[in-house]
């Protein structure tokens, strides 16, 4: 059995940052400079009044490394808050993918059937292609994409994970959210 300090954990971390030039480079530079993993990273402004963006990142490492990552993030000057959604109670995680399938005949029909099961929507269509929009956990997206592969999967775009804590817990201050 691996020792506690050798177990690799995967964590989803939400970071509230000042939306200023270079802030994303600072976060990414921290990961590359210190040799941490980034499995997924998304960023967008969430609080225009205070000029704040939210970065959601999925990372993996030993417990000591995960703690280091959070502390190093917290130390960056434009970082307002760091929350470990994996540690701090339950959270909801979602990802969106646009999946392009180029096919005709049975494959085309089968792809539409599977899309229906996964509650994927057709957002673009030609006589020999579909583009599906599918939302859900990363695992669900993996499954959908896996099924589409033999059916003519031609192009793929994924957003990376966004996540939020369940219940009334917030990263933004309540006033800012309103």
């Amino acid at each position: 059995m691996p020792k506690i300090d050798e177990i690799i954990e995967t964590h989803t971390i939400a970071v509230l940052v000042d939306n200023e030039p270079g802030v994303l480079a600072r976060v990414i530079g921290l990961f590359s400079g210190r040799g941490y993993n980034i499995e997924s990273l998304t960023v967008a402004e969430v609080d225009p009044n205070n000029n704040r963006s939210r970065i959601t990142l999925v990372t993996s490492g030993t417990r000591m490394v995960i703690e280091q990552i959070k502390n190093q993030l917290g130390r960056l000057v434009p970082v307002a808050r760091v929350t470990d959604l994996t540690d701090e109670g339950p959270s909801v995680e979602r990802e969106l993918a646009l999946v392009k399938v180029v096919s005709t005949g049975d494959h085309r029909i089968e792809s539409l059937r599977i899309a229906d099961i996964f509650r994927a929507r057709v957002v673009d269509s030609t006589t020999d292609s579909f583009t599906f929009e599918v939302t859900g956990s990363s695992q669900k997206l993996d499954a959908f994409i896996g099924l589409m592969r033999p059916l003519g999967l031609a192009d793929l775009s994924r957003t990376g994970v966004v996540a939020i804590a369940r219940g009334p817990v917030t990263l933004l201050t309540p006033a800012a959210a309103a």
Binding site: P21, G22, A25, R26, G29, G33, V77
Partner: peptide
């Protein structure tokens, strides 16, 4: 300059 000095400063500004 801000790109080069980002990892070797506490903070930088343009």
């Amino acid at each position: 300059t801000t790109g080069i000095t980002r990892p070797c400063t506490k903070h930088n500004y343009l």
